[in-house]
């Protein structure tokens, strides 16, 4: 994949359940990914009110994929997979 788009939910529940630890995720991206990852903070993805999605904090990847109980490590791993192990 050429580029990965990441949207981090900054709603109250997500923030308290772990999104706060992802605010500096950009600093953790390997240099080789430069220009290939676009990170955005969103006011609320409104996923926490839906059932069976796995629990906050939520991150949305490439507009369609939802990562539940996201952590910086999980997110970095997933981005790496999508970039084809470019890390």
């Amino acid at each position: 994949m050429e580029k990965v788009k990441v949207e981090i939910c900054c709603g109250t529940a997500c923030y308290l359940l772990g999104a706060a630890n992802m605010m500096d995720i950009e600093d953790k991206l390997p240099a080789e990914w430069s220009g290939k990852v676009e990170i955005e903070a969103k006011p609320c993805l409104e996923l926490c009110e839906r059932e069976n999605l796995g629990g906050a904090p939520y991150v949305r990847i490439n507009d369609t994929e939802v990562m539940a109980q996201a952590t910086p490590d999980k997110l970095l791993t997933r981005i790496g997979e999508l970039l084809g192990g470019a890390a």
Partner: peptide, 15 residues
């Protein structure tokens, strides 16, 4: 729009 710089310097609250 949230500036990425604001994410890092939000000081304990969401940006």
């Amino acid at each position: 729009k949230v500036r990425l710089a604001d994410m890092k310097t939000a000081g304990g609250l969401p940006p």
